[in-house]
């Protein structure tokens, strides 16, 4: 390297043209960090969930500020953003998990199909059967593998006979890509599985009650790359039947699994758009800075 450089300079007999820093990026339409209007199209043609002007407060602190977006049917939408940006908070609004936090208050409108999920007549247990959730750390019940999956259908009265339940458990484990690994050890405790297997067991448990939407809060952050790849492959397969909302800290993961991406920052939805566009031509400077690793 050094020899070449010296040779070049002496050859040219003049200073090399300096390599300018790329400064003005004109794919960026919003360069003002203080402009916090959502950039991008929030609506989709066939929405499964509609969120409009959602605010969330923890006591006095406002965690989500006036967020509106659609979640399309059979799409995987990824929420990305730095820690504390509100992406998990917003995800938890979608099946009213925030109800469990006494200081949390949610305003605005969130609809699943045509039902306002915060309406008085909505049964939260039924809602969470329609909008299932998978958490960051695999959290199987301290029961057998079989019972982990059978629990939901049983309490929701989805099956009448033992044979039906057996079939449903098998089918759920099959769809979660776990059946081969566990069919001979159904009665062993769920916690005896490896981390990645436990996470797939949790996904099997979530889909056993036949939800319409699955919320995933960093489902792979406690898993190794191989288990992560299996979950990502699974997400892609599940998309045929379910709508999936995934919160992830890994931008590569968001890019791999999702069709749309929403970028949150300090409680605002800054930008939303097709995943390809967000990761190659973001339109807001904040998005660009985040995905290129310039802050956060």
């Amino acid at each position: 390297m050094s020899t070449t450089a010296i040779e070049t300079e002496s050859v040219l007999g003049q200073p090399l043209r300096s390599a300018a820093e790329p400064r003005q990026k004109s794919t960026i339409e919003v360069t003002d960090y203080n402009n916090r209007q959502t950039v991008g199209k929030i609506t989709v043609d066939n929405p499964k969930m509609l969120c409009r002007e959602v605010d969330v407060y923890y006591g006095q602190k406002q965690a989500i500020k006036n967020v509106s977006l659609d979640i399309g049917a059979n799409e995987v939408i990824a929420f990305i953003g730095p820690s504390g940006c509100g992406k998990s908070t917003f995800l938890r609004c979608l099946n009213r998990m925030n109800d469990t936090i006494p200081s949390a208050r949610v305003t605005g409108q969130i609809k699943l199909d045509n039902d306002d999920i915060y309406a008085k007549e909505i049964d939260v247990v039924q809602l969470r059967a329609r909008v299932g959730m998978v958490f960051q750390k695999p959290n199987p019940f301290p029961k057998s593998i079989y019972e982990n999956v059978a629990y939901g259908p049983r309490i929701h009265g989805m099956v009448n006979t033992k044979a039906e339940l057996d079939d449903l458990v098998r089918e759920s484990l099959e769809r979660a890509g776990l059946i081969k690994e566990v069919e001979k050890r159904m009665l062993e405790p769920g916690t005896s599985l490896s981390g990645g297997q436990q996470q797939r067991l949790c996904i099997a448990r979530a889909i056993a009650v036949n939800p319409e939407v699955i919320l995933m809060d960093e489902p792979c952050s406690a898993l190794d790359p191989i288990a992560t790849a299996k979950i990502e492959e699974l997400i892609d397969e599940l998309r045929e039947n379910y709508t999936i909302v995934i919160v992830t800290h890994s931008m590569q993961q968001a890019a791999r699994v999702s069709q749309r991406t929403a970028y949150f920052h300090l409680g605002d939805l800054i930008e939303i758009g097709d995943t390809d566009q967000i990761f190659t031509n973001p339109r807001h400077k904040l998005t660009e800075d985040y995905i290129t690793g310039r802050f956060g």
């Binding site: 090399l16 300096s18 390599a19 800075d289 290129t292 690793g293 310039r294 802050f295 956060g296």
Partner: peptide, 25 residues
């Protein structure tokens, strides 16, 4: 904590500058 031009990982900036210099050379 935004610095508009520099990456959080400084070595990344070094590599990019290095590449740009090579291309201009």
């Amino acid at each position: 904590p935004i610095s508009p031009e520099a990456h959080t990982v400084k070595q990344f900036d070094v590599q990019l500058a290095n590449l740009r210099n090579m291309v201009m050379e």
